[in-house]
Design a protein around this nucleic acid. Structure first.
Lengths: 135, 135
DNA sequence: CAAAATGATATAAATATAGTATCATTTAAC
DNA sequence: GTTAAATGATACTATATTTATATCATTTTG
């Protein structure tokens, strides 16, 4: 079971790195070198973070990225939702029909309650909190 | 994020169904009809449950399956481990090398603690507990 | 020996994850 | 105004995982 996919993971690393730079403009090239993330992959990830207004892209020569929010306000759940979609842990497997199975449905209830706990825990993790732990 | 894959889910349904039969021999054919699970898929799932001694296969004509444990002793985590392998929620993505990234490692610590909670919750769910909820 | 069950196992199809490549656009410096 | 260095948009490829399907062998009862 995988809670966090690789793009979420890379995004978090990039965001932590940017937060450490305290507002200095950072280029994708620099982060590729520092974080050893495949270039094309990281670029796409940064673009997605830009579209979701997590970071602010500056175009043109001398361009780059800065966080568009304080690191305290960027939560792990925000990043996960961008790259992994819904955080539902128990997506019904009978997508377009009503679930025909009672057994599944009460198992599901249990899982939904576990899910609520997990999401709360993840929401409590911000880029800033990872930053301070990194020291 | 998917906590439970489809084979785990089907396995749980089959086990709940068997538990409801209170020791009566049940064939794969019967469960295919009752539970609307694809035949070949369910057969393979039952075989795997047999290999892991969760149920006891009876060969030959008039054969079938019975649980080999009381339903209280079959935990959701047992079934998940059979079909999904390790329950580690945070498998390090740098499989064969030491993780070169500090940021990831402290994020990982947080996730490991969430994982412990989740596994405990799942371990508390047995086939018997699902059975009583089903009534 | 035939029918009805499971055992073992190979293969295929569909989906999700991970990664690459290309061309367009913007901006600063000369 | 041209060039270099950055991002934007987007299409594509590769790999792994999930979700099955199919086939033939073996066991057992009648």
């Amino acid at each position: 079971m995988k809670l966090v996919t690789r793009d979420t993971d890379y995004a978090v690393r990039a965001l932590v790195y940017m937060a450490q730079q305290r507002g200095r403009l950072v280029t994708s090239r620099e982060m590729v070198d520092e974080l050893r993330i495949p270039r094309a992959f990281l670029r796409r990830i940064l673009q997605q973070l830009g579209r979701h207004a997590v970071l602010k892209p500056i175009k043109g020569k001398m361009g780059g990225f800065v966080l568009s929010l304080p690191a305290e306000k960027i939560r792990l759940t925000d990043v996960m939702r961008i790259f992994q979609g819904s955080l539902e842990i128990s997506e019904c497997m009978f997508k377009k029909q009503v679930c025909p199975n009672r057994a599944r449905c009460f198992l599901r209830k249990r899982i939904v309650s576990i899910e609520a706990y997990v999401v709360n825990q993840l929401r409590a993790i911000s880029i800033a909190s990872l930053l301070t732990e990194a020291r």
